[in-house]
């Protein structure tokens, strides 16, 4: 009999304790973040979308080679001796025209391995994480600063130079005929 009344007492008592707690929580400020309007600040070393600062890029191709999933593809063209490509922010002299610098972020595994080898620290991960696209091709980012005409021009310049060199090599002939002509083109 005592347990019976004790049960009733416990039931009512605990009920009111519980109701007090839930009523308090009715007025506790909510922890929900209204996402598109309010965003949490990201950590400094967050690894999200890649960005390339083309002003500093010297086209060394080291990031592309480091990438385990081959999501970076780079093409470069040698500059003419007369052209001045300027310097990077760290004072390194640029010598190559970068005619293609594509990052397929759909393939990217966010390992950050491309960031470490970069000699000029021009490729890095930003905190941008909202880059969904309707087409998969939209995730292929191109960072090249030159436009299509300029690229064609640089390429034709280089081809001309090569042709001139080859012609210059071919014309005198006597000194060394057995030198292979294809060697300078091997760095593309």
């Amino acid at each position: 009999m005592t347990t019976y009344f004790k049960n009733i007492y416990t039931a009512l008592y605990t009920l009111f304790v519980g109701m007090k707690i839930t009523f308090k929580h009715l007025f506790v400020p909510s922890v929900t973040i209204q996402y598109p309007e309010v965003k949490l600040p990201m950590a400094d070393r967050i690894r999200n979308r890649l960005y390339v600062n083309m002003d500093d890029c010297i086209g060394c191709d080291q990031c592309a080679r480091a990438c385990p999933v081959s999501c970076i593809s780079i093409e470069t063209v040698k500059s003419m001796p007369t052209e001045d490509l300027g310097k990077t922010s760290q004072g390194k002299k640029k010598a190559l025209w970068v005619t293609k610098f594509d990052i397929d972020i759909a393939k990217c595994c966010f390992c950050q391995l491309c960031v470490f080898p970069c000699p000029t620290e021009c490729i890095y991960m930003t905190d941008a994480y909202e880059f969904s696209e309707f087409e998969r091709s939209g995730l292929n980012y191109s960072f090249v600063t030159l436009n299509a005409d300029e690229i064609a021009e640089k390429k034709s310049n280089f081809a001309k130079m090569e042709a001139e060199k080859a012609a210059a090599k071919a014309a005198p002939k006597p000194p060394k005929a057995e030198e292979p002509a294809s060697k300078p083109a091997g760095d593309a």
Partner: peptide, 13 residues
């Protein structure tokens, strides 16, 4: 709304 605020959420917004 009541369920949301009792669980420190916001509910439909």
């Amino acid at each position: 709304k009541v369920s949301a605020h009792m669980q420190d959420r916001l509910g439909p917004m």
